[in-house]
Amino acid sequence: MMSEVHPREILICTIAKLLDGVRHVAVGASSPIPAAGAMLLRALRQQAGEKGPRISILGSVEHNFFTNGSAELFDCAGQGRIDAFCLGGGQIDGRGNVNLVGTGDYPQTPVRWPGSFGSAYLYYVVPRVILFREEHTPRALVEKVDFISTPGVSNDGVYRSGGPIALLTSKALFRFDKTRPGFDLQSIHPGHDLAGIKDATGFQFAHESQPEQTALPNPQTLALLRGRVYDEVAETYPDFAAQMRREIERPLSHAS
Protein backbone atom coordinates (compact mmCIF):
# COMPACT_ATOMS: atom_id res chain seq x y z
CA MET A 1 0.00 0.00 0.00
CA MET A 2 1.53 3.26 -1.07
CA SER A 3 1.38 6.30 1.16
CA GLU A 4 -0.27 9.41 -0.27
CA VAL A 5 1.60 11.64 -2.67
CA HIS A 6 4.00 14.06 -0.99
CA PRO A 7 3.56 17.70 -2.16
CA ARG A 8 7.16 17.73 -3.36
CA GLU A 9 6.49 14.59 -5.41
CA ILE A 10 3.85 16.57 -7.32
CA LEU A 11 6.53 19.17 -8.06
CA ILE A 12 9.02 16.52 -9.20
CA CYS A 13 6.44 14.89 -11.48
CA THR A 14 5.37 18.27 -12.88
CA ILE A 15 8.98 19.12 -13.72
CA ALA A 16 9.36 15.76 -15.47
CA LYS A 17 6.32 16.62 -17.63
CA LEU A 18 7.60 20.11 -18.42
CA LEU A 19 10.92 18.60 -19.52
CA ASP A 20 9.38 15.91 -21.72
CA GLY A 21 11.10 15.73 -25.09
CA VAL A 22 14.36 17.42 -24.14
CA ARG A 23 17.69 15.84 -25.11
CA HIS A 24 19.88 17.57 -22.57
CA VAL A 25 18.88 19.30 -19.33
CA ALA A 26 21.17 21.13 -16.92
CA VAL A 27 20.35 21.71 -13.25
CA GLY A 28 22.11 23.70 -10.57
CA ALA A 29 24.24 22.21 -7.82
CA SER A 30 21.72 22.82 -5.04
CA SER A 31 18.53 21.97 -6.91
CA PRO A 32 17.38 18.53 -5.77
CA ILE A 33 13.75 18.87 -6.92
CA PRO A 34 14.58 19.88 -10.53
CA ALA A 35 17.27 17.18 -10.59
CA ALA A 36 14.77 14.59 -9.36
CA GLY A 37 12.32 15.74 -12.05
CA ALA A 38 14.94 15.28 -14.75
CA MET A 39 15.96 11.89 -13.37
CA LEU A 40 12.29 10.80 -13.26
CA LEU A 41 11.85 11.76 -16.91
CA ARG A 42 14.96 9.77 -17.83
CA ALA A 43 13.71 6.74 -15.89
CA LEU A 44 10.27 6.97 -17.57
CA ARG A 45 11.81 7.26 -21.04
CA GLN A 46 14.18 4.37 -20.40
CA GLN A 47 11.29 2.26 -19.12
CA ALA A 48 9.66 2.94 -22.50
CA GLY A 49 12.79 1.65 -24.23
CA GLU A 50 14.20 5.05 -25.16
CA LYS A 51 17.52 6.60 -24.28
CA GLY A 52 16.14 9.42 -22.18
CA PRO A 53 17.62 12.88 -21.70
CA ARG A 54 21.21 13.63 -20.78
CA ILE A 55 21.35 15.33 -17.38
CA SER A 56 24.17 17.63 -16.34
CA ILE A 57 24.25 18.46 -12.66
CA LEU A 58 26.64 21.29 -11.96
CA GLY A 59 29.17 20.45 -9.28
CA SER A 60 28.45 16.71 -9.46
CA VAL A 61 31.14 14.29 -10.59
CA GLU A 62 28.67 11.47 -11.29
CA HIS A 63 26.38 13.56 -13.53
CA ASN A 64 28.92 15.77 -15.23
CA PHE A 65 29.96 15.15 -18.81
CA PHE A 66 32.20 18.18 -19.10
CA THR A 67 35.98 18.09 -19.34
CA ASN A 68 36.62 21.72 -20.21
CA GLY A 69 36.07 23.37 -16.84
CA SER A 70 33.12 25.45 -15.73
CA ALA A 71 33.05 27.42 -19.00
CA GLU A 72 31.94 24.37 -20.99
CA LEU A 73 28.33 24.41 -19.78
CA PHE A 74 27.93 27.94 -21.11
CA ASP A 75 29.68 27.18 -24.38
CA CYS A 76 27.38 24.17 -24.73
CA ALA A 77 24.30 26.31 -24.04
CA GLY A 78 25.45 29.03 -26.42
CA GLN A 79 25.56 26.50 -29.26
CA GLY A 80 22.04 25.25 -28.49
CA ARG A 81 23.23 21.96 -27.02
CA ILE A 82 21.24 22.42 -23.82
CA ASP A 83 17.47 22.29 -24.22
CA ALA A 84 16.28 22.99 -20.70
CA PHE A 85 17.37 24.55 -17.44
CA CYS A 86 15.69 25.18 -14.09
CA LEU A 87 16.23 28.61 -12.61
CA GLY A 88 15.26 29.93 -9.18
CA GLY A 89 15.22 33.51 -7.97
CA GLY A 90 15.07 35.59 -4.83
CA GLN A 91 12.40 37.62 -6.62
CA ILE A 92 10.50 36.74 -9.80
CA ASP A 93 8.17 39.30 -11.30
CA GLY A 94 5.12 39.23 -13.56
CA ARG A 95 7.21 39.88 -16.69
CA GLY A 96 9.46 36.91 -15.95
CA ASN A 97 12.34 39.06 -14.71
CA VAL A 98 14.55 37.30 -12.16
CA ASN A 99 16.50 38.88 -9.29
CA LEU A 100 19.31 36.86 -7.72
CA VAL A 101 21.25 39.85 -6.36
CA GLY A 102 19.29 41.42 -3.50
CA THR A 103 16.45 43.65 -2.31
CA GLY A 104 16.45 47.44 -2.20
CA ASP A 105 18.73 49.84 -4.04
CA TYR A 106 21.84 48.36 -5.68
CA PRO A 107 24.71 48.17 -4.88
CA GLN A 108 24.21 48.69 -1.15
CA THR A 109 21.36 46.19 -0.96
CA PRO A 110 20.16 45.67 2.63
CA VAL A 111 19.52 42.01 1.80
CA ARG A 112 22.19 40.55 -0.47
CA TRP A 113 21.78 37.17 -2.18
CA PRO A 114 24.74 35.29 -3.64
CA GLY A 115 24.53 36.72 -7.16
CA SER A 116 23.35 36.15 -10.70
CA PHE A 117 25.46 33.04 -11.48
CA GLY A 118 25.03 32.10 -15.16
CA SER A 119 21.45 33.36 -15.41
CA ALA A 120 22.24 36.44 -17.52
CA TYR A 121 23.34 34.09 -20.28
CA LEU A 122 21.45 30.80 -19.88
CA TYR A 123 18.05 32.52 -19.68
CA TYR A 124 18.70 33.97 -23.14
CA VAL A 125 19.99 30.88 -24.93
CA VAL A 126 18.33 27.84 -23.33
CA PRO A 127 14.99 27.27 -25.11
CA ARG A 128 13.03 25.80 -22.23
CA VAL A 129 13.74 27.52 -18.91
CA ILE A 130 11.54 26.46 -16.01
CA LEU A 131 11.38 28.99 -13.22
CA PHE A 132 11.20 27.09 -9.97
CA ARG A 133 10.62 28.65 -6.58
CA GLU A 134 8.98 26.64 -3.79
CA GLU A 135 8.20 29.73 -1.75
CA HIS A 136 5.00 31.21 -3.18
CA THR A 137 4.57 34.51 -1.34
CA PRO A 138 4.20 38.18 -2.29
CA ARG A 139 7.84 38.78 -1.31
CA ALA A 140 9.12 36.09 -3.71
CA LEU A 141 6.65 36.67 -6.56
CA VAL A 142 6.66 40.44 -6.92
CA GLU A 143 5.14 42.99 -9.28
CA LYS A 144 8.58 44.30 -10.23
CA VAL A 145 11.98 42.95 -9.20
CA ASP A 146 14.41 45.30 -7.40
CA PHE A 147 17.28 44.19 -9.67
CA ILE A 148 17.09 42.44 -13.04
CA SER A 149 19.71 39.70 -12.96
CA THR A 150 18.17 38.48 -16.18
CA PRO A 151 15.06 39.69 -18.05
CA GLY A 152 12.01 37.58 -18.94
CA VAL A 153 11.76 39.01 -22.45
CA SER A 154 14.04 40.98 -24.76
CA ASN A 155 13.35 43.79 -27.22
CA ASP A 156 12.98 42.94 -30.91
CA GLY A 157 16.37 42.60 -32.55
CA VAL A 158 18.11 41.26 -29.43
CA TYR A 159 19.39 37.70 -29.91
CA ARG A 160 17.17 35.50 -27.80
CA SER A 161 16.82 31.80 -28.61
CA GLY A 162 15.61 30.93 -25.12
CA GLY A 163 13.63 32.07 -22.13
CA PRO A 164 11.03 31.08 -19.57
CA ILE A 165 8.22 28.68 -20.44
CA ALA A 166 6.75 28.11 -16.98
CA LEU A 167 6.87 29.01 -13.30
CA LEU A 168 6.38 26.24 -10.76
CA THR A 169 5.87 26.94 -7.05
CA SER A 170 4.68 24.96 -4.04
CA LYS A 171 1.14 26.16 -4.78
CA ALA A 172 0.69 26.31 -8.54
CA LEU A 173 1.97 26.00 -12.09
CA PHE A 174 1.97 29.01 -14.43
CA ARG A 175 2.74 29.15 -18.16
CA PHE A 176 4.65 32.13 -19.48
CA ASP A 177 3.18 34.04 -22.40
CA LYS A 178 6.01 36.07 -23.87
CA THR A 179 3.71 38.03 -26.19
CA ARG A 180 1.95 39.86 -23.32
CA PRO A 181 4.39 39.29 -21.52
CA GLY A 182 2.97 37.65 -18.41
CA PHE A 183 2.00 34.47 -16.62
CA ASP A 184 -1.14 32.36 -17.14
CA LEU A 185 -2.22 30.16 -14.25
CA GLN A 186 -2.21 26.63 -15.62
CA SER A 187 -3.11 24.55 -12.58
CA ILE A 188 -3.34 24.67 -8.80
CA HIS A 189 -1.77 22.00 -6.62
CA PRO A 190 -4.03 19.99 -4.28
CA GLY A 191 -4.89 21.82 -1.06
CA HIS A 192 -4.76 25.32 -2.58
CA ASP A 193 -7.37 27.54 -4.26
CA LEU A 194 -7.53 30.51 -6.60
CA ALA A 195 -8.22 33.07 -3.87
CA GLY A 196 -5.20 31.84 -1.91
CA ILE A 197 -3.00 31.93 -5.01
CA LYS A 198 -4.07 35.52 -5.71
CA ASP A 199 -3.26 36.55 -2.14
CA ALA A 200 0.15 34.89 -2.32
CA THR A 201 1.15 36.34 -5.70
CA GLY A 202 2.55 39.86 -5.96
CA PHE A 203 1.87 40.17 -9.70
CA GLN A 204 -1.27 40.01 -11.85
CA PHE A 205 -1.79 36.84 -13.86
CA ALA A 206 -4.36 35.47 -16.29
CA HIS A 207 -6.52 32.53 -15.24
CA GLU A 208 -9.67 30.54 -15.99
CA SER A 209 -12.62 31.17 -13.69
CA GLN A 210 -12.23 27.61 -12.40
CA PRO A 211 -8.60 26.57 -12.82
CA GLU A 212 -7.63 22.93 -13.10
CA GLN A 213 -5.95 21.00 -10.34
CA THR A 214 -2.36 19.91 -10.99
CA ALA A 215 -2.37 16.24 -12.02
CA LEU A 216 -1.13 13.68 -9.51
CA PRO A 217 1.34 11.03 -10.62
CA ASN A 218 -0.11 7.64 -11.49
CA PRO A 219 0.91 4.66 -9.30
CA GLN A 220 3.51 3.38 -11.79
CA THR A 221 5.23 6.77 -11.98
CA LEU A 222 5.13 7.12 -8.21
CA ALA A 223 6.66 3.65 -7.77
CA LEU A 224 9.45 4.48 -10.19
CA LEU A 225 10.11 7.76 -8.37
CA ARG A 226 10.21 6.10 -4.96
CA GLY A 227 12.46 3.30 -6.12
CA ARG A 228 15.04 3.90 -8.81
CA VAL A 229 14.81 7.70 -8.92
CA TYR A 230 15.33 8.37 -5.21
CA ASP A 231 18.30 5.97 -5.35
CA GLU A 232 19.80 8.09 -8.14
CA VAL A 233 18.91 11.33 -6.38
CA ALA A 234 20.69 10.06 -3.25
CA GLU A 235 24.01 9.87 -5.10
CA THR A 236 24.07 13.65 -5.46
CA TYR A 237 21.61 14.85 -2.82
CA PRO A 238 21.76 12.26 0.01
CA ASP A 239 20.08 14.50 2.59
CA PHE A 240 17.19 15.35 0.30
CA ALA A 241 16.59 11.72 -0.71
CA ALA A 242 16.70 10.58 2.93
CA GLN A 243 14.28 13.33 3.94
CA MET A 244 11.82 12.44 1.18
CA ARG A 245 11.94 8.77 2.14
CA ARG A 246 11.40 9.61 5.81
CA GLU A 247 8.46 11.86 5.06
CA ILE A 248 6.67 9.41 2.76
CA GLU A 249 7.18 6.60 5.30
CA ARG A 250 5.78 8.61 8.18
CA PRO A 251 2.04 8.04 7.49
CA LEU A 252 2.69 4.28 7.22
CA SER A 253 4.60 3.97 10.47
CA HIS A 254 1.96 6.15 12.09
CA ALA A 255 -0.73 3.71 10.93
CA SER A 256 1.10 0.69 12.31
Binding site: G78, V101, Y106, P107, S116, A120, Y121, L122, Y123, Y124, V125, F147, I148, S149, T150, P151, S154, N155, V158, Y159
Partner: peptide
Protein backbone atom coordinates in the same frame (compact mmCIF):
# COMPACT_ATOMS: atom_id res chain seq x y z
CA UNK B 1 31.88 39.41 -27.54
CA UNK B 2 29.14 37.61 -25.64
CA UNK B 3 25.41 36.90 -26.07
CA UNK B 4 22.93 37.49 -23.26
CA UNK B 5 23.18 40.36 -20.77
CA UNK B 6 21.24 42.97 -22.80
CA UNK B 7 18.36 44.32 -20.72
CA UNK B 8 19.85 43.14 -17.42
CA UNK B 9 20.81 45.44 -14.55
CA UNK B 10 24.20 43.72 -14.52
CA UNK B 11 24.97 45.41 -17.84
CA UNK B 12 23.42 48.66 -16.63
CA UNK B 13 25.89 48.82 -13.71
Amino acid sequence: PMRGLIGSDLLHH
